[in-house]
Amino acid sequence: MNRATERGLTLLCWLCGLLPLAILCIVICYLLVRGGSSLNLALIFDRVPAMDALLGHQQVFDGLFPALCGTTMLVLLTLALALIPGLCGGIYLAEYASPLERRILGLLFDIIAGLPSIVIGLAGFSLSILLHRLFPGRFGPCMLLSAMALAFLILPYLVRSTQAALNSIPQSLRITGPALGASKLQNILLVLLPSRIQDIIGGIILAIGRAAEDTAVIMLTGAVASAGMFRSLLDQYEALPFYIYYISSQYTDAEELQRGFGAALVLFTLCGLIFLLALLVEQGFSRRWKR
């Protein structure tokens, strides 16, 4: 390899390497230019006063409010379903499982993590068909179903991040608890988990981000374009990502399209904030670690 090839390759690396940054910039600028102007309260609440909408006095039809509520509820429900099993699974894998169990379960979780989200959505959908056959009645695609499917989607992330956090604890800290007479469970709860709490919270936040942005699962399990304000767990609902997808193919007038851009900007910002939060938590961790 002579000097010229070296130079050429370096240049090529710079060109290729700055491409993703450039693309991200283009995406952000484009969203801001096209959607920035529509970013106001009317985008979310339409013409309904914000307080009335928040308190449920008045329905919002032409705003993002129902979709935002739907996504929020969905994420909370998903988290409620997945958090405990995820953390427990991670702890079990890191602390209790035998090497064989660890390998088999690790493989299974990796496969689940790798499953296309549409397949998980399809599984959720199939479940609703089965339930429909077993209990002929009203159990179709609904928020609960979506939340279950999403919980299944983020479960491996939670398990793996918890496991990785616990595995990264140095042996010296690991034996401090038992040396002081702590039982295994006490050691985990009082020493190990707190020492890596930032990592674990960071993992949870990133999992939330995934649940919030996923569209493929919810479009198969109950998200619809216009359901109005979400009412019960067994109803269909509106969600932000699905709304954006819907607008991109089905918009009828310029105003609707404008709202689509607004929605895309809102979702983008939301995910950006979630990422920032995760980053801050992590930074806090590393700063404390240095001292």
Partner: peptide
């Protein structure tokens, strides 16, 4: 900066990429 940006890009919703691409 690059690493942080790349991690951020991993978290950008797919639907947003799709939406921007449809119109751009």
């Amino acid at each position: 900066l690059l690493l942080v940006t790349i991690r951020f890009m991993a978290g950008v919703p797919t639907v947003v990429y799709g939406f921007v691409a449809v119109f751009l």
